[in-house]
């Protein structure tokens, strides 16, 4: 009988786990929808700002320290975006491994790290790498002003000549079930990515309310902020996507285990009933002969 009881407790515990993973999946799905919307709303702004910036820079032939590529890269800041919490499949692991590979294969640079999210911090702490700066609770506090603060700080470091390049490593949100780890160079800004079809229609006798150089400076700052905000959004959306699919798998596994356990449970119960029946009937048979 003890075997039966054990199985029964096991089934109820797996059922509890299933409920929890199911709930987590629902929560992740709801948040994912919001995060996805955020990316969609941001896209037109980001595209417009890039094309306005390219228009101004190219039509006036201005160069700016933030646009110029340094000939020799020496100090590079690596911004790594992960989540604060686990239970989201390979999301954090992939990114940390990618960053570590980058670190080992680019020994010629002097690399500094900036971690956004607790998971990257603990991963690299274990390997004896400490960040110059860190930030947590991205998924709760994500907002444009927050991105502005981070961007401002990074840009100041860059302008002061502390770094020759600022790279971001983050999970690019592709769909609810797939994310891709990408590395992007955020500073210096690369203008060649801007859409070119508008340049022809761009008028030469444009009226500038403020001097073009000043305008361009502002635009670059805004562009950079938007980029930072975008990759924060992508990372958060990708995290929810990863968590959703991880939790879905967990729920499915729990259901599998439950059905297997129920089967064993029923078999055991059946066999014990059969044994009892045999005992009763053989007892009755023995009584007849007396």
């Amino acid at each position: 009988m003890s075997g039966l009881k054990k199985i029964r407790t096991r089934i109820s515990s797996v059922k509890n786990t299933e409920q929890i993973t199911q709930a987590m999946k629902m929560v992740a799905a709801a948040r994912l929808r919001k995060a996805q919307e955020r990316i969609l709303n941001l896209r037109p702004y980001a595209e417009n700002i890039l094309s306005v910036m390219a228009d101004v820079a190219l039509s006036c032939n201005i160069s700016h320290p933030l646009l110029k590529k340094k000939e020799k890269l020496e100090k590079v800041l690596l911004v790594v975006l992960t989540s604060d919490k686990g239970l989201c499949g390979g999301f954090n692991n992939n990114i940390c491994r990618f960053a570590e590979n980058f670190y080992h294969s680019h020994k010629e640079y002097e690399l500094d790290f900036f971690f956004i999210g607790k998971k990257a911090k603990s991963y690299f702490q274990f390997r004896g790498i400490l960040p110059v700066d860190e930030m947590f609770q991205l998924d709760k506090e994500i907002s444009y002003p927050l991105a502005g603060k981070v961007a401002h700080q990074l840009m100041e470091n860059f302008s002061e000549g502390k770094y020759d390049g600022i790279y971001f490593i983050y999970n690019n949100f592709q769909s609810a079930i797939s994310q891709k780890v990408v590395k992007e160079i955020f500073l210096p800004v690369d203008l060649s990515a801007a859409p070119l079809q508008r340049q022809k229609s761009f008028s030469k006798d444009l009226i500038f309310e403020i001097p073009p150089l000043e305008l361009l400076e502002n635009l670059i700052e805004k562009h950079f902020t938007v980029q930072v905000y975008r990759c924060m959004c992508e990372s958060v959306a990708a995290e929810y996507g990863a968590r959703m699919s991880a939790m879905e798998n967990a729920t499915k596994n729990a259901q599998d285990i439950i059905s297997r356990l129920t089967l064993t449970f029923n078999k055991m119960r059946q066999s014990s009933i059969t044994t009892e029946l045999i005992e009763v009937s053989s007892g009755a048979e023995a009584m007849k002969n007396i």
Binding site: V52, S203, D205, L206, E209, I210, L215, N218
Partner: peptide, 11 residues
């Protein structure tokens, strides 16, 4: 700004 305004960029 009315329709037909000259091209302009401003903050």
């Amino acid at each position: 700004i009315l329709p037909g305004h000259a091209p302009l960029v401003s903050t």
